[in-house]
Design a protein around this nucleic acid. Structure first.
Length: 291
DNA sequence: TCCTATGTTGTATG
DNA sequence: ACATACAACATAGG
């Protein structure tokens, strides 16, 4: 699972949002991986100062003063991402966990960076500043010290790319959901770590499965197709969005799904949009039938 | 003014 | 114990 970050040469570019408020990419699997790498230039460099908002909601599971004193004068040595969670290891057995929620973002800025109101955790170094901003504060920071792997990291479900994420495991999970839509089930992190709203829609569109289908009603072939598309979308998203945050090409559902009157890139039919499983859902009625 | 937002969690109910 | 549904969290933008 863990990919250790490379110690890249310092990158002093300011990559914070220039509109100062919104980020068009909300964090799912690949976006989290992209944001994780934003802090690579700061790994293995001393942190001179920690600026944080101790009462911000993102610290609701965190001993803020312990975090502050540990990081001040210390350093981050490596990082990995799993599901929608990031883990940064520190100089002396520290674990810094970051979840980006709906509006969180990591960025690297100049050494003389002036914090904005939504910058809740800012790590100041000699050559750069590492910034975690989150204006809605659905994100979460966690911190612990010690060899023991913290629960928030060890309890993450087996990665979609792993061997344990098998068609049989997916099928067994679906079989237990006899009254829930497949769309809602795909969002369950206990089996589909990192899948979020846009990925779920993309996967179902490719697998030609209607989002309102009852999860337990999929037949063996549909489960196989679904499993294959989950793997494919995850891998391709990591290769594209995970590297550059570039939007996927027009051959994906992704760039069409929020446009009013958007059309299915395969059938040309007008896309449907409706709340399914409590989330806004987009599908192509021409490809995805309720049977 | 009202509605939307790509996430998770706590709680109530079946 | 497990499955299910939904309000709540906080903020900005259309």
């Amino acid at each position: 699972m863990g990919k250790d970050a490379k110690d890249n040469p310092p990158n002093i570019d300011c990559q914070t949002d220039d509109d100062g408020s919104t980020c068009s990419h909300m964090p799912e699997l690949a976006e989290v991986e992209y944001f994780r790498k934003q802090w690579n230039p700061g790994l293995k460099h001393a942190i001179r100062d920690v600026r944080l908002h101790p009462n911000a909601r993102i610290f609701r599971s965190c001993e803020v003063e312990e975090l502050r004193s540990h990081l001040t004068g210390g350093e981050l040595v490596s990082s990995s991402a799993a599901a929608k969670q990031m883990a940064f290891r520190t100089h002396r057995q520290g674990w810094l966990g970051i979840h980006l929620g709906m509006s969180g973002a990591l960025s690297v800025a100049n050494a003389d960076y002036v914090s904005r109101p939504a910058d809740h955790l800012v790590l100041v170094q000699i050559e750069r500043t590492l910034v975690f901003s989150d204006f809605r504060m659905f994100g979460r920071v966690q911190f612990s010290i010690g060899k023991a792997v913290p629960d928030w990291w060890s309890k993450i479900a087996p990665a979609i790319a792993s061997k344990e994420f098998s068609p049989a495991a997916v099928g067994a999970f679906l079989k237990r959901r006899t009254r829930t839509s497949i769309k809602a089930v795909l969002l369950m992190q206990e089996r589909f770590p990192g899948i979020g709203n846009w990925m779920a829609d993309e996967i179902l569109w490719r697998a030609a499965i209607h989002p309102k289908r009852i999860a337990g009603s999929l037949d063996a072939e549909e489960v196989r197709n679904l499993h294959r598309e989950i793997r494919w979308v995850s891998r391709r998203a990591l290769e594209t969005i995970g590297e550059t945050m570039a939007d996927p090409p027009d051959t994906w559902l992704f760039p069409h799904r929020w446009q009013n009157g958007g059309k299915c890139p395969r059938s040309g039919a007008v896309l449907a949009r409706e709340v399914v499983g409590g989330r806004t859902t987009c599908w192509s009625p021409a490809r995805q039938k309720l049977r």
